[in-house]
């Protein structure tokens, strides 16, 4: 549906809906008619996407999303306290000593690869490769069916990243050794299912 924005009779009138016929082929008849007494500022063709005014449509959605997020975080914060352990003591090393969860994936890499690889080469590579992604990906299409390689590569990266964090957080205990019991419980203490 072609939409004429602004101009026209000005205030008091929302966007005018013009029959698509004449507008779709611009060289034909000029647009005149009872609803248009002055030329429109912008004429959007039928082929163009439909738009809405940002205010209030988008602003309203943003407000609702913000409100929902606030209520969510307020509820969580009333229910769950942020951790606070003993006062720091450099003489007592906790076991295991873990990095914050978003870096625990790196810690996991350190377990498996030489430090220069895990601590330096991999992260640097990921950052540089990420910044270069738009320049390396020469495929102009944005449709998923045309981007099988890109999507596959990213999905592999994303799954690995998530998996390493999950392993580090949930499957590593004393001395950062692998430990099923954090998730599955101690077989000696509870009867197996």
């Amino acid at each position: 549906m072609a939409t004429v924005v602004g101009g026209g009779n000005g205030e008091g009138r929302r966007a005018v809906q013009v029959p698509p016929g004449p507008l779709a082929r611009p060289s034909q008849r000029p647009v005149t008619g009872p609803e248009l007494t002055s030329p429109p500022l912008v004429v959007r063709r039928r082929e163009e996407e439909e738009t809405v005014v940002t205010f209030p449509h988008l602003v309203w959605k943003e407000f609702l999303a913000g409100l929902a997020a606030f209520v969510f975080f307020m509820a969580v914060s009333i229910q769950i306290n942020a951790p606070l352990l003993q006062r720091a003591n450099t003489a007592i090393t906790p076991n295991p000593a873990k990095a914050p969860w978003y870096f625990v994936g790196l810690q996991e890499l350190l377990e498996r690869f030489p430090p220069v690889m895990a601590g330096v080469a991999f992260p640097t590579f990921v950052i540089v490769f990420m910044i270069l992604t738009p320049y390396l990906d020469r495929n102009p299409s944005r449709r998923p069916q045309d981007r099988k390689v890109a999507i596959t590569l990213f999905t592999i990266y994303a799954c690995l990243a998530v998996a390493f964090v999950v392993i580090g957080v949930f499957f590593r205990s004393l001395a950062f050794n692998w430990d099923w019991t954090m998730i599955l419980g101690h077989p000696g203490l509870s009867s197996p299912v």
Binding site: P83, L84, L85, Q86, R87, A88, N89, T90, I92, T93, P94, A97, K98, A99, P100, Y102, F103, L106, Q107, L110, P115, V116, A118, G119, V120
Partner: peptide, 26 residues
């Protein structure tokens, strides 16, 4: 990461110790 250290509890200090140890390997 920088905020993690501020409470100065066992969690904070040791997480930052582990985290900054990674920088050592460059």
């Amino acid at each position: 990461f920088s905020g993690y250290l501020l409470p100065w509890d066992q969690l904070a200090v040791w997480a930052i110790t582990v985290g900054t140890n990674m920088a050592k390997y460059a």
